[in-house]
Design a protein around this nucleic acid. Structure first.
Length: 576
DNA sequence: CGGACAAGCTGA
DNA sequence: CAGCTTGTCCGG
């Protein structure tokens, strides 16, 4: 009887190579594909995964024995999926397998609970599940727990959520219905045994025994994409996983991305139901309105602020001012050192380019007064306080907690932080509509959908809460994002956006990757000889690589040797 | 990644 | 030329 040999991928980020090891006789029959093991590599003990068993080792290499079998790891299917994802996002398998592995050693699986009988799903969700490759366009206030429940009715399901808060809501909903649920990653072993798994994006890699359906909730949410490279997207991983497993995959969103629409068939409720799931939207045309102060407090907004309810104002600019001009001579305030425009985070002026600070005095005429051409959250808070004569809270990404005030102003972080309000006002929606990113329109609509959840639906009334409203201040009242919100019809954005992207060959009509870091120049140079990709420098040591599709792009990325030095390759960059 | 080893630099 | 830094290679 010869000794068994297994192939191991070490859990060392920089090593993307497998090594062969002997299986000690004592554990001869216990080692399976996917198992987590410890091995001695180059004199040190490291973790790793068995990626193949009973292999033919290369000649002339003296094999060492496995140091230890730690426990269960990703299934063979997830191992293969990681291979695909490593190609698709130009990353290393180890980082993906780490996500697919249990947080603590798992020796064996618990018994599988008996699944309960569930009431039949609603007709729309059932149709989407039956179709198998469906985009379920549900208005912002729709109950996503129902979709999860419908999926769990088919057997052990995988439910991916963009936020932990949604994970908790969905989990509670499933448990109330008697569905056994494993929350990823703590419930790793129970999921592997065969119960419905709920989690945020990492759960795309959770084991689910006898997987029956996959659901991605709010597929448009950017939280589904990993920020560090490899920048894999839970939606795309989930869709590929479902296809390989031959089970249905349903993506839900109030405003599906073009990527989702290109992938599957759209299922949407009738007009009245969708309309009822969006709040009342009021558009304030800032061209017509003659607002005082910073120009951000329209008469319509003042009316809402003077009402009774809780009001959230959204402005995606921190600090007091992002652009100032001298009150006496009109000159723009600029940096004394490098001449760039300065902003005013507090009292002093600060250069955003070189970080120099100076007191607020005009360099041209010496006067001390400035006009605030582009007010930030801090300034608006002061103006709001003067207006409503009560304390106004401020929420930005860096502040913490939830202010107890009736009126709150903040960056988009405020929409994550506050659970409910009677009105949400976007003080300068144009900043979102005109942002220099190709996904700006989709992202702006996503922001409005998030705000819609904060204020609730327009009707029919539910939960006894009065209908909330969105107030959109803009100089582009005819923009399709504004129209989509007003008419509760996100398809308008998709249609306009599809035409634009197709014309400009932007994703999903092409594939892109952003290359940066010290090794980027050499890598970009090496890539540019590839016939099917275009390489363009887009900033200091940042390159954009484009190709007709992901096959062309990812094949080229995989075929190009990485130079020494730091190199970040972000396939499908979100903020470009 | 991190150890091994080789090639280059410094100072007596 | 010892002693040390810097760079490149490779791991079973």
């Amino acid at each position: 009887m010869t000794q068994r040999v297994v192939r191991v991928l070490p859990d060392v980020p920089a090593i993307d190579k497998t090594f062969d090891y002997l299986v000690p006789d004592a554990i001869r029959d216990q080692v399976r594909v996917g198992d987590v093991v410890r091995v001695v590599l180059h004199g040190r003990r490291v973790g790793g995964w068995v990626v193949e068993v009973d292999v033919e080792p290369p000649e002339g290499v003296e094999l060492r024995p496995l140091a230890k079998r730690s426990g269960l790891g990703p299934s063979a299917e997830l191992l293969e999926l990681s291979e695909w994802a490593a190609w698709r996002w130009a990353g290393r398998r180890a980082s993906l397998l780490r996500t697919a592995s249990p947080p603590r050693v798992v020796g064996g699986l618990p018994p599988r609970p008996v699944p309960p009988a569930l009431p039949p799903a609603g007709p729309l969700t059932a149709a989407a599940l039956d179709h198998g490759r469906a985009v379920l366009r549900l208005p912002p206030t729709a109950d996503l727990g129902n979709v999860a429940l419908a999926a769990a009715g088919r057997g052990p399901a995988l439910v991916l959520c963009p936020t932990q808060a949604l994970v908790e809501r969905v989990t509670a909903r499933l448990r109330d219905a008697g569905v056994p649920v494993a929350v990823h990653p703590d419930g790793w072993a129970r999921g592997a045994a065969g119960v419905t798994v709920v989690g945020t994006r990492a759960a795309a890699w959770a084991p689910v025994g006898d997987l029956a359906a996959v659901v991605v909730l709010d597929e448009h949410d950017e939280a589904h994409q990993q920020e560090q490279a490899p920048t894999w997207h839970a939606r795309d991983v989930a869709a590929e996983r479902a296809a390989r497993a031959g089970v249905p995959c349903v993506l839900t969103s109030p405003c599906p991305t073009l990527e989702a629409l290109a992938w599957g068939e759209v299922f949407e409720p009738d007009r009245g139901r969708e309309r009822g799931g969006w709040p009342v939207v009021e558009v304030v045309d800032q061209r017509a309105d003659e607002p005082g102060r910073s120009g951000l407090l329209s008469e319509a907004l003042v009316r809402v602020l003077r009402g009774e309810g809780r009001v959230v104002c959204v402005l995606n600019r921190t600090g007091r001012s992002r652009l100032l001009a001298c009150r006496s001579c009109g000159e723009l305030a600029r940096c004394a050192v490098c001449d760039a425009a300065v902003d005013q985070p507090g009292d002093d002026l600060r250069c955003r380019r070189c970080d120099a600070t100076r007191p607020p005095v005009c360099l041209h005429c010496g006067a001390g007064g400035f006009k605030n051409l582009r007010a930030g959250v801090t300034r608006v808070r002061e103006e709001l306080e003067a207006l409503v004569r009560e304390p106004v809270g401020e929420v930005t990404a860096s502040s913490d907690g939830e202010p107890g005030t009736r009126v709150v102003v903040g960056t988009e972080a405020v929409l994550q932080r506050l659970p409910a309000a009677d009105a949400v006002a976007f003080l300068d929606l144009d900043q979102e509509l005109l942002a220099p990113r190709f996904r700006a329109a989709e992202q702006a609509l996503g922001l409005l959908a998030r705000a819609a959840r904060v204020v609730g639906a327009s009707g029919p009334p539910s939960g006894g809460r009065a209908a909330g409203r969105l107030l959109l201040q803009t100089r582009l009242p005819d923009h399709e994002v504004v129209e989509a919100a007003v008419h509760a019809d996100p398809g308008r954005v998709a249609a306009a956006e599809r035409a634009r992207r197709e014309l400009l060959a932007l994703p999903p009509f092409s594939a892109m990757a952003e290359v940066s870091g010290a090794g980027a120049p050499a890598y970009a140079d090496a890539l540019s000889v590839h016939p099917h990709v275009q390489v363009a420098e887009v900033g200091d040591d940042r390159w954009l690589v484009r190709a007709a599709d992901h096959v062309e792009l990812c094949d080229a990325l995989a075929a190009t040797a990485r130079p020494a030095g730091r190199l970040r390759v972000a396939v499908d960059p979100l903020r470009t």
